[in-house]
Design a protein around this nucleic acid. Structure first.
Lengths: 211, 211
DNA sequence: GTCTATACCTGGATAGAC
DNA sequence: GTCTATCCAGGTATAGAC
């Protein structure tokens, strides 16, 4: 569960005492869920205020505008997505490579199953980014690029170990990126595919040598 | 270009003469572009009316509501997406299997490159479908399911021909579906990947046998 | 920090003339 | 078939009291 991811951000230290701004965090928390459920446009500040248990104008004390709220939320979310959190390259050896790549992917799939809001809100930001809002486009690029280059690094590492055939590493890395990324989307729209099987297929395919 | 895809729908025959309802078609045409560019919510009927060159209430003569307009548009678009239009199974032989699968996918990628609006608006409908609007969810499922089962049929056919190893056909078909589907998304957000290479990698991987 | 009240705008949709 | 005029709901955001 990602239920408490916003608490860290809003804590500050006064005279050595950690003070947590509860309302600020709660707004982000509720907004996260409502934005994911209904989208940015169809989620009004009234809805957020209502669920937080405050009045609409009270939100404006914490955030100067709805756009800024959306913006701050993205910064928090983007921190959560990191290739190295799911795949730690240094733990991969020649012997465990296939099994570990499979297991790490499956764990990521399971994480996505646990939090249905995550791919939804990510998609909202993706759309925003793609509609000439360079601010989000850039950051979104960075996130996905992190996975693409992460897989490339991992496969290069695997090639050095002799666990991965040293051919077309970039294309293979990008294929893995597209598969793991789309699993979230397909879950979102409710497809009951066997995602672990699909991931296994993808993993095997990059480890098989040209035939 | 898909510039004329709405003309067929709105033509009717009177006394043997084909009459085309120009405004009706023009509204769909403009709406298609604006919805893709700005999303359903941020595209108002005023914007559409302005670009069509009529007043806002005039739209209501042709469509009872904005929702119905969105609805009708989907019916038109859904007709365009069909696995068999991109991959015609009967033309696949043992000898041409790999080359043809590669070529058909590349043609589809090229089509997507030509019409940037298509993946955008498709994404809009996907979101709609995933937000408890069972109407769209069902139809969207049908579209994607068509590709999944299409690839499965194609690979089964390939296995009979001896061009594809007869293992894990379903997982392989689903992997191809997810790769080809996500290429549109990645193009949408502006990634300059070498999609033909990625597709080639996916194709090769399903044709390689275990080991 | 949070409230009530309110300003201001823009959305979808309708009435009725032409 | 298309218009002008209008309605009303709901949005973001602000003023000012507490």
């Amino acid at each position: 569960m990602r239920a408490g991811i916003f608490w860290g951000f809003c804590s500050k230290t006064f005279n050595g005492v950690i003070v947590i701004n509860e309302t600020y965090a709660k707004i982000l928390e509720i907004a996260y869920r409502l934005f994911a459920e209904h989208g940015f446009d169809k989620t009004s500040l009234s809805m957020i205020a209502k669920e937080v248990g405050i009045s609409k104008p009270a939100i404006y004390y914490h955030f100067p505008s709805k756009d800024v709220l959306i913006d701050v939320l993205f910064d928090e979310i983007a921190k959560e997505i990191d290739f190295s959190k799911s795949f730690s390259i240094q733990d991969y050896t020649k012997d465990n490579f296939e099994a570990k790549l499979l297991a790490d992917g499956c764990r990521m799939i399971e994480d996505q199953r646990q939090d249905e809001y995550f791919p939804r809100i990510l998609n909202e930001y993706m759309i925003r980014g793609s509609r000439n809002e360079p601010k989000y486009e850039q950051r979104f690029h960075a996130v996905t690029e992190g996975f693409a280059s992460g897989f490339e690094e991992l496969l290069t590492h695997g090639a050095k170990l002799g666990a991965v055939p040293d051919e077309r590493i970039t294309a293979k890395a990008h294929m893995l990126t597209m598969v793991i990324d789309n699993i979230g989307n397909f879950m979102m729209i409710g497809f009951k595919f066997n995602y672990e099987d699909i991931w296994q297929e993808a993993v095997k395919s990059v480890l098989r040598s040209e035939g």
